[in-house]
Amino acid sequence: MKTQLAALAQNGELRAAINTGNRALVQQQSDGTLTGVSPALARRLASEIGAELETVVYAGAGKVFADAGQGRWDVGFLAIDPMRAQKVAFTDPYIVIEATFAVRADAEYLRDVGDIDATGVSVLTATGSAYDMHLTKTLKHATLERSGTPPDSFAAFAAGQCDAVAGVRASLEGYFADDPSVRILSGVLTEVRQAMVLPHHDAVAIAALNEFVARAVSDGFVAAHSAAQE
């Protein structure tokens, strides 16, 4: 399997697409250092195959996916989605995270996730995110609007756009922690299955990468680096 994984690197360099818009998986420190489970997995993979790691940083999952097949990254981290799977190859998930909504603190009519899909309610989401795709398929009554990356959508919501904004719970909590005008719902919009991903279909390479992910889960590596950011 190591030979197949080593083939992912180009000229001894492994380019890993890292989405900083998901705080449950990635945290960017003030000096630019990336911490969290996704960067840790990228470092472990590069170390195992003897490659230098180059992180290709993106502000949102939609941008990572848009660059798949453009020769800009060799391995990435995305939420599993059937439509994305037509273009890219996923491993089994290494972690499952929650997405939910933030609403105005004084919006008493929005107390639960089930209250969101109602006539007259407007919902904001990050373009191309896993929860964007989920809401596109499931919303029946509320109006859905999109705004760039997760931080873009959070900023637009804070500035007054829409009645609710969707996001990964950890990202919403991090962004709105000091904003008393915003309330984060306790319910779950959807569970997002996060996986490692190749920018194209390659049965041999994705099998090897899936074995790498399985080892990282079974030996406690994923759990240790997920707990480190809580």
Score class of each variant (00 low, 15 high):
1 M>Q: 13
6 A>I: 03
6 A>P: 09
10 Q>V: 12
12 G>I: 01
14 L>Q: 01
14 L>N: 02
16 A>I: 05
16 A>G: 11
16 A>E: 04
17 A>L: 08
18 I>E: 03
21 G>Q: 10
21 G>I: 12
23 R>H: 15
23 R>E: 14
25 L>Y: 01
27 Q>C: 11
28 Q>I: 00
29 Q>N: 15
32 G>S: 13
33 T>C: 06
33 T>Q: 15
34 L>Q: 02
37 V>G: 00
37 V>W: 01
38 S>T: 13
40 A>F: 08
40 A>L: 05
41 L>K: 01
42 A>R: 00
44 R>C: 04
46 A>D: 03
48 E>K: 09
48 E>M: 02
52 E>G: 09
52 E>L: 09
53 L>E: 05
54 E>L: 09
58 Y>M: 02
60 G>S: 11
60 G>P: 02
61 A>L: 01
62 G>K: 06
62 G>E: 09
63 K>L: 15
63 K>Y: 12
67 D>Q: 13
68 A>G: 03
69 G>R: 13
72 R>V: 15
72 R>Y: 12
73 W>N: 08
74 D>V: 05
76 G>A: 08
79 A>D: 06
80 I>Q: 07
81 D>L: 00
83 M>F: 04
83 M>P: 00
83 M>R: 10
84 R>T: 00
85 A>P: 00
85 A>Y: 01
86 Q>C: 02
86 Q>L: 09
88 V>F: 11
90 F>W: 12
91 T>S: 08
93 P>L: 06
94 Y>T: 06
94 Y>W: 11
95 I>S: 01
97 I>S: 05
98 E>I: 01
99 A>G: 15
102 A>K: 07
104 R>I: 11
104 R>C: 08
105 A>N: 15
106 D>S: 11
107 A>Y: 07
107 A>D: 15
108 E>F: 14
108 E>Y: 07
115 D>G: 07
116 I>C: 08
119 T>S: 15
121 V>A: 02
123 V>G: 01
124 L>S: 04
125 T>F: 03
126 A>R: 00
128 G>Y: 10
133 M>D: 14
134 H>P: 10
136 T>F: 02
136 T>R: 13
140 K>T: 14
143 T>D: 12
145 E>L: 14
146 R>C: 12
147 S>T: 14
150 P>C: 12
151 P>D: 07
152 D>M: 01
153 S>K: 09
155 A>L: 15
156 A>D: 14
160 G>Q: 08
161 Q>P: 05
161 Q>A: 11
164 A>N: 07
166 A>H: 05
170 A>Y: 04
172 L>M: 06
175 Y>D: 09
176 F>Y: 06
178 D>E: 15
179 D>K: 10
179 D>Q: 12
183 R>N: 13
185 L>D: 05
186 S>I: 02
187 G>R: 09
188 V>P: 02
189 L>Y: 15
189 L>I: 14
191 E>T: 14
195 A>M: 05
195 A>H: 00
197 V>C: 13
197 V>W: 07
197 V>R: 05
197 V>S: 11
198 L>K: 02
198 L>D: 06
199 P>L: 04
206 I>Q: 09
207 A>H: 10
208 A>V: 10
208 A>N: 02
209 L>Q: 06
210 N>A: 08
210 N>V: 06
213 V>Q: 00
216 A>K: 03
217 V>M: 02
219 D>T: 01
219 D>W: 03
221 F>C: 00
222 V>D: 09
228 A>M: 02
229 Q>K: 11
